[in-house]
Structures are given as C-alpha cells and as structure tokens.
Nucleic acid binder design. Structure first.
Lengths: 146, 146
DNA sequence: GTTATTTAGTTGATATATGCAACTAATCTT
DNA sequence: AAGATTAGTTGCATATATCAACTAAATAAC
C-alpha cells in the first residue's frame, strides 16, 4: 500500500484520534480528576520545563494564542491543580505553579499513558520506535521553520 | 534522548500541531475555499472510500458521534461542496455526494498537502518514511482493538 | 521627570468541534 | 399489527481557538 501518497495529516490524525480515544476513556475510568487532553498537555509542559513558566512562555511553547492558554489555566486553577504566582520583580509576570494535587494528576496520567504506550508498541522493535520518534522530531522541526 | 519515556500523544501531538499550523496557513493563503482540518478530513474520506457513504458510515470511519459529523456535513452542504442524496430503497439513508466544486477543493488541498509533505520529508530516507507509516498503522490498529 | 513604546495578562465576541440524550421517520423482525 | 432497530436530527452543554481591544506594569526615548 503506497501510503506515501496519502495526506500525512490524515494518516497520523486518525492514529492520534484512536489513541486519544482510548487514553480519554481510561482517564475517565481510572483518574480521580479526569481532564481533557489539552489540560493534560499544559500540566505536562509545566512538569518537563526546567525553569518556572509564565503564561506567555506556555503559549509560545504550545504555539497557541495566550488567551486560549489562559482559559485552560483558569480551569486548572479552579480545580486547584495550578496557582498563579506574581513575580516580585515584574508584577506583570505570573508564574504557573503546579500544586501537590496537580503533581498527583500528572503522575496518574503518566501511568495511564505509559500502560497504553506499552500495549500499542507491542510487536514493534526498539529500532522501529526509534526511527518513528526520529521522524516525528524531524517533521516537527521542519514545520517549525515554515 | 530517551524519548521512549515521553507520553506518545504529547510528542506526536506537538508534531501534528506544527504541521497543521503550516497546512492551515497555506490553505488560507492559497485555497479559493479554505476549510478547517476536520472539514477537509470529511471530504478526504468521501474521496478515498470506494463505495458511496452515508452519515452513519462516515461517523464510524472517523470514530466520532454522528451528530458531530452531521454538523460538519451541514457546513459543507451550505458551501455547496457536498449534497445529501436519499436512497430510493431505504429513505432513512442519505448518501453524501461530493460536488464538482467539492472535488476541486479536494484536489487543491491535496496539492498544498503534497508540497508541504515533500518539504517536511526532506532529509528522511524512503526506508525511514516506510517504517514511520508502518508504526502509525500498527498503533492505530492496536488502539482500535482497545 | 515625562511621554511613548513594549510587554504580560485579561476580556468579549465569535467560530468550530464534540458528545450525550431524546426525538422523528423509516425499515425490519416477530 | 406491534415491537425493535436503524438513520438522521435537534437541543443542550462543554471545550478550544483566535482576534481585537483593553488594563497594568516595565522599559526606552527624550
């Protein structure tokens, strides 16, 4: 099957859709505080960034409008998963801090995701997964330059 | 870099986001009738399916609720890109037909997508792309079973 | 020190997508 | 003929997204 001729977004989009469908389902079933994928994505980035993050930086990191990120932060704050902390030196800046509760939600989601990932990878070699991730990174970097 | 430990959805999601950002931008710049990605996805599936498709089948194919597909079809119909055709034998069934105008939109989008795809693939071998698509298919099939 | 510019965050408005439940119309099964 | 199933539709609620315009705060220019 000559997939090379298929729209890349359609092919990968369908895989994402199926995978996220299962992820959402399991998050709803197992998690104490189920969140949407976008909300998890925000928490994830707060978790992996080495330094503290303000809203503008989060918007840049996710390639989205700051008002979109702000609405997501509003919900996460309401659920007490993050708090806004004002920078003493520059009162315009508000740092997004993950609460203890938020960290629990992150760990819980990582477990659910890791379990699913293991199931999905079954039958694939480490070398195939390595190439897969490499291609994903390559395409992302290329797209970022456009 | 041990990407294997990162949430699969996050990694691929970021790639999709960057890629779709460029695709949307070019669609808006170049296309006569710019559509959203979801609208293009519906047209794409209508295009690649060998037999004619009713709404229920489209919903199944995309893994979404039929009411969600129906709203998208409503918009595409309003833009005269598709028409609903009632099955004479079973008046519950309405076939989704792509108009000539719709076919033009599909071709236009395929061109934009193919051009982008070539740019994104630059630096990747055919073998690497082959493995990438194989992994995507594998993961989609596995997820479908869950 | 004052004014202009830039930056960070917020809000309102609008558009799109999504799913669930409940409904109608049509067909099939019993 | 009545009950069950299927296809499509509608109302409602929720989430995400972007743009423009705004306020508050900091920086730059004069």
């Amino acid at each position: 099957m000559e997939q090379d001729n298929l729209p890349l977004g359609m092919v990968v989009g369908q895989m994402m859709h199926e995978m996220l469908r299962v992820l959402k389902k399991r998050d709803i079933e197992k998690a104490e505080i189920p969140l949407t994928i976008e909300q998890h994505a925000v928490l994830h980035i707060l978790n992996v960034k080495e330094s503290d993050v303000i809203l503008k930086e989060m918007a840049d990191a996710m390639g989205k409008d700051k008002s979109a990120i702000l609405r997501i932060i509003d919900v996460l704050e309401k659920k007490e998963l993050v708090r806004r902390a004002i920078d003493q030196k520059d009162r315009r800046k508000k740092y997004l801090m993950v609460t203890k509760k938020g960290e629990q939600v992150i760990e819980e989601f990582y477990k659910i995701d890791e379990e699913l990932r293991e199931e999905l990878k079954e039958g694939l070699t480490k070398e195939e997964m390595k190439i897969f991730y490499m291609v994903v990174c390559h395409i992302k970097k290329k797209a970022e330059q456009l």
